[in-house]
Nucleic acid binder design. Structure first.
Lengths: 254, 254
DNA sequence: CGACTTATTGATGCACTTCAAGCGACGTGG
DNA sequence: CCACGTCGCTTGAAGTGCATCAATAAGTCG
């Protein structure tokens, strides 16, 4: 349950027990953060790196006219600012969506970790690159797809990302976002999100109630939005496009 | 002229002569590439890192329906894939816009450079983070601004980025993009680009002819689109948002 | 020079926004 | 316990920013 990060990283790299132990050493730093709380704000000088162990968070900017644009979602196992923390000043905000368990790690601790554990270093680097690839795909999503495919694409992406950290059961996962959150993510109005969800429900592609999203037909939803998972650079999963490795399937238990 | 990279990096880090020499050592690998030529394609396994010494290039994806989405512009001094090259497989394409001078650097050479020159390493890391910040801002741009402000924002960004590598004279810079290029960047139609440019010309904010863009009133254009340069994380320039340092203003000459 | 690409302009259509009203769920305080 | 306000969602009606289609003009290159 707490090991979302290790699970995710082991998608890229096969760790030794020492590697895992080094990562688990951060566990005592875990703290609980309420929903709708900023972890760091634009203009702040970043001190700690934030790791989400449980719950959902996001990266966002507020424009002069008050408009909010969400640029990333963070789910369990995600670092919010592994890279960003080297910059002198935050150019955006990071805040929680739902209540979260967050680990704050001093940058020095990260440096030491990287100095000692090359496999972990490689895996973290890989993660950072995948995060950037996701950001690129979001640009494609907003720039090139219309509302219904845009939202369907997001649902597919979250399914795969949450699956790698064991947060999916029978194609269902927690979905604490409001329609306004989705709107500010997709560059659409909240009204349009409502209408689009209605359409996706009508097509029997999804259900969404009590903050739980269920994808009724994954293949059909992927086809609907032209989802290509290559940008997630997954390995060892049923979605990677590579040969599935059966002896890793026992990793899947939450 | 060839030292766009060093100029850009010295925006972040003060180098020693040895640092500069190490960077200049790649110069012999320079090759000329024609306009509209792919440097690397989706599906390829990346070998070399590409550095643009002269000309403009871009990062893009092609969707199943043939739609192109441009995700980044590269100008002199930019690495196209400093990060990406660690991934197993390209999830997008990189191609030139205009004729370019490109340096192809084996990843091993980058590793060696980083092992020996910590200042250069820091500067390259910084660059990579700024590139990601630019990507985030593009998402904001497409997601939250309407056509005219979107394009104005791009013009402002290019002005600053090109200024740091000495490619701007009297608020004019080379602009080899077609209107279709801009359209595929902004998630708009090429017709809309044409109309928007007409509007920006009418407002006497810009002129654009013979592939040269001139910004007639920088402050007004910035105000027009609400441009905030903080995401470029510039130092030592008249745009940084920090107190201007008068004795550095001589840097401005192209 | 002729062939092709790029840019411009008008007419029409549509995807999405904005505005507004209503509704249910939830929490708070009297 | 109910009254009340707030928040999130839904739905309709009207408006608009931009897309699409199509024709012409201007620029570019072998």
């Amino acid at each position: 349950m707490q090991d979302a990060l290790i699970r995710k990283l082991e998608n890229f790299e096969t760790f030794t027990a020492a590697d895992r132990a080094a990562l688990r050493a951060f566990a005592p730093r875990t703290r609980q953060v309420g929903a709708r709380t900023d972890l760091i704000r634009e203009g702040d000088t970043p001190e700690n790196v934030h790791l989400i162990l449980d719950g959902y968070a996001c990266r966002y900017k507020i424009l002069p006219d008050g408009q909010r644009q969400i640029m990333a979602f963070f789910v369990p196992g995600d670092f919010c600012d592994l890279n960003v923390f080297i910059l002198d000043q935050m150019d955006h905000n990071i805040g929680t969506i739902s209540p979260c368990q967050v680990v704050g790690i001093p940058r020095q601790a990260i440096d030491e970790l990287m100095a000692q554990y090359p496999l972990v270093t490689r895996a973290l680097l890989w993660c950072a690159l995948v995060d950037e690839a996701v950001l690129r795909e979001w640009l494609v999503n907003i720039g090139s797809r219309q509302a219904d495919q845009r939202i369907a694409h997001l649902f597919c992406e979250l399914l795969l990302r949450l699956e790698t950290v064991g947060r999916v059961t029978e194609n269902s996962y927690a979905f604490p976002f409001t329609q306004t959150d989705i709107a500010d993510t997709m560059g659409l109005s909240d009204v349009q999100i409502s209408r689009t969800l209605r359409e996706l429900r009508r097509l029997e592609l999804i259900t969404l109630k009590h903050r739980v999203l269920t994808i009724l037909d994954v293949e059909q939803l992927k086809a609907y939005c032209g989802f290509n998972p290559n940008y997630l650079h997954l390995r060892n999963t049923r979605w990677s496009g590579r040969r599935q490795v059966p002896w890793l399937s026992d990793v899947q238990e939450g």
